[in-house]
Design a protein around this nucleic acid. Sequence first.
RNA 1: UCCGGCGUAGCUCAAUGGUAGAGCGGGUGGCUGUUAACCACUAGGUUGUAGGUUCGAGCCCUACCGCCGGAGCCA
Length: 503
Amino acid sequence: MQNMAGITDIKSLHESEGSEVTLRGWLYGKRSGGKIAFLLLRDGTGVCQCVVEAREERAFEAASGLGQESSLAVTGTIRKDDRAPGGYEMLVSAIDVIQAVDDYPIARKSHGVDFLMNHRHLWLRSPRQTAILRIRHTLVRAMREFFDERDFTLIDTPILSPGAAEGAGTLFPVRYFDEGEVNLAQTGQLYLESACMALGKVYCFGPTFRAEKSKTRRHLTEFWMIEPEIAFAGLDDLMDLAEEFICGIVDAVLDKHRGDLELLGRDPAPLEKVAAPFPRITYSDAVDILRGDELHEQLAADLESDRARLQEMIDEITALEDRRDRSRKGWQQDKLEERIQSLREEVRDLDTDIANRPAHMRDALNFKWGQDLGGDEETLISRQFDKPVFITEYPREVKAFYMKPSPDNPGVVLNMDVIAPEGYGEIIGGSQREDDYDALDARMLEEGMNREPYEWYLDLRRYGSVPHGGFGLGVERTVAWICGLRHIRETIPFARLMGRIYP
RNA sequence: UCCGGCGUAGCUCAAUGGUAGAGCGGGUGGCUGUUAACCACUAGGUUGUAGGUUCGAGCCCUACCGCCGGAGCCA
């Protein structure tokens, strides 16, 4: 939107066709001829090609020495031109250099992971990262709107909390005055249950912390979770809600971010298939699938085709290397090099995957009822479906103390996990909660838990207890799935990973 | 903690145990419609660290450090 001083942004450039305006932003790229220069200015809303002709002497002079990411205010006339990226360009009359830069470290080419992560504060400026951040924003907004529109009340649960909520999890200790050690929260759920009894339908949304030493593409030590909790709800209600929720947020991204998805190289087709109803299978069904012939025949076939694919990729690399060595143009070599590198990375991935496959298959065949489903098992199962899949009613031994056992089968609890398609793993975990005082008390005793720090939680079962339940959705895994990212570290502005806390 | 891979110019990568190179980026010059522009020239290095083998080590061996991936653990 153009203001009184003629300042506008690139997103609304078409409104200014024919008039003189000022854009403020950063130099993204530059090309120049002897008497003409093309500046690519980015301002966070888009990129505009600014044409500087030599007859504008002062502007031309100013443009000549500018390096990438110099900050500028550029004034000129907007005109339509098919040769300009975006369809509109600026014929520059004046350049105000706010800060000239000549040594910006991140080039418009590929870089290594370590380098980029160490420059995350600058990496955020690149087109791919801004696309992800925009999609993350839309997702978060869609999530909040989803619950707001359904009369949920937002409850902010504490981050400093006295005890472990889910028993086994590894937590970050924090010294708290003279109280000794407290922990960073790994879920808001227990507090949320209190608010649920106050307001009926509530949700919390905030960061959570896990101190597990997991170095994988699916793990962060600090991640965001949105958790609804509903009074007078059973497991089926929770699944219906989760289903609608996931469809809603996927639609929001498909609606607004076709361009961003394309920029990310994300095929939208699998996302378009995400529609209710999702498959719902029980843990016992899952065990049958894992041990069944059908899965193993399919896995064997996959293994064959993946081996063939691996060989194809290796051949392609050899061909590309040959082309690279014969290529004269520097930037073509660089481009080929980039494809070679990314192919090599894929080869390494596929290679480890193939190497791990026999162990996975063996584990699946030997899977015993009662074991917890790990990431590998979940992935195997999700490959059987092209939508998110619910897995319900896990053995109570592998699940948290607060989950309610099934009335039909006390050996299992009324829980559900949602596994995202395409190998992205669990994005939702939830359950109906144990609402009976005696049953909860007995279970805590059985787990050897110290009851004292949970007296307040037990109070919820003393005073007007009702059936209730909820679930938590991991924001970053959802972003990774929807954006089709290999690694979760790109889904959050500043990823906190084991061994990485800078910047 | 364990297993595997990798550490070479600012960046991305080459280099049979035998004179450390290319492209990008930087600098200088040329070019009025470029799309990661192009052309010419140019500067840029304690090959992660410390030992060892060898006439000779970026390359082989040992230890350590760092990063990545996986396992375990987990969402």
